[in-house]
Amino acid sequence: TQSIHIEKSDTAADTYGFSLSSVEEDGIRRLYVNSVKETGLASKKGLKAGDEILEINNRAADALNSSMLKDFLSQPSLGLLVRT
């Protein structure tokens, strides 16, 4: 696993530069990185398409609903625990 911390203040970007997809496997919801913008903040921090997001801001990914995800992604900083 890899811990990634991203700050939007690093650039004038209003997004982190990646998209997520939610997949249900064996009754457990998993979050995967769908795509990463080549010039985006997430790419600079090493996030890659296909990575599994285990935690966002110290909250287990399978416990997050879509409104919580939207809220986290609109925050000025983001902490991710990722399995590559």
Rank of each mutant, 00 (worst) to 15 (best):
S67K: 09
A60M: 07
R59C: 14
I4P: 04
D26L: 09
L64D: 00
M68C: 12
P76G: 07
E7C: 14
D62H: 13
R30K: 14
S67D: 15
N65Q: 08
L80M: 13
V33C: 06
D10F: 04
L81W: 02
S19G: 12
A49K: 13
D14P: 02
I4S: 02
I4T: 02
A12M: 11
S43L: 06
F72E: 07
L41E: 09
A61H: 07
T15D: 15
L81K: 15
L81C: 07
L54I: 10
A49I: 13
E52K: 01
R59K: 12
M68Q: 13
S35R: 11
I28V: 13
S66T: 14
K48T: 07
D10M: 08
S9M: 03
I56H: 00
G50R: 00
S35N: 08
V33E: 02
D71N: 14
S21Y: 11
D10E: 10
A42D: 01
N65C: 10
T1K: 07
S66F: 08
V33W: 00
I28C: 13
Y32E: 05
K44T: 10
D62K: 11
S9F: 05
S67C: 14
K8G: 03
I56L: 06
T11H: 09
V23C: 11
A49S: 11
N57E: 06
G79R: 15
K37V: 15
S22L: 14
E25C: 11
I56T: 00
T84A: 07
K37Y: 13
P76E: 15
D62P: 10
R29E: 07
G46P: 07
D14F: 06
L64I: 14
K8M: 08
V82M: 05
N58H: 13
R30T: 04
D26V: 06
S43P: 05
I6L: 15
I56Q: 00
E52W: 02
N58R: 06
R59Y: 15
D71I: 09
T11E: 11
A42E: 04
G40Y: 00
N57H: 03
Q2N: 13
E55H: 05
Q75P: 02
L64E: 03
L54G: 01
N34F: 03
A49E: 12
T1P: 02
L73G: 04
L54S: 02
D14K: 07
A12W: 07
F72L: 13
L80W: 04
V33T: 02
L73V: 05
R29F: 06
L54C: 02
S19T: 11
F72P: 02
T39V: 07
A63H: 10
A12T: 14
V33D: 03
L78T: 04
T84R: 15
L73Q: 09
S77C: 12
I28Q: 12
G40R: 02
T39D: 15
D26E: 13
E52V: 03
R30E: 02
E52S: 00
Q75G: 15
K37W: 10
K37H: 12
S74L: 07
L81E: 10
T11A: 13
V36M: 02
Q75M: 13
Y16C: 01
A13V: 11
T39W: 09
T39A: 13
D51T: 06
S77H: 05
P76V: 04
A42L: 04
V23S: 10
S66E: 14
I53N: 01
L69K: 03
S22W: 14
L41Y: 08
T15W: 01
E24G: 04
V82D: 05
S74K: 15
N34G: 12
I53Q: 00
S43M: 13
L78Q: 02
L31C: 06
A63G: 13
V23D: 08
S66G: 12
I53M: 00
D71W: 10
M68W: 00
Y16G: 00
Q2K: 15
K70R: 12
D51R: 01
T15I: 04
Q75T: 08
R83T: 06
F18G: 02
A42Q: 06
G27Q: 03
G46W: 04
G17P: 05
S67N: 13
R30V: 03
Y32R: 05
T84P: 15
S35G: 08
D71L: 11
N34T: 11
S43T: 05
T39R: 12
A61Q: 04
E7T: 13
I28S: 12
A13T: 14
V23F: 09
S9R: 11
G27V: 01
L73S: 06
G50W: 03
A49M: 12
L73T: 04
K37Q: 14
D26F: 07
I6D: 00
L73M: 15
A63K: 13
I53S: 02
E7F: 07
G46E: 00
Y32G: 02
D26A: 09
S22T: 13
Y16P: 01
H5Q: 05
T1S: 07
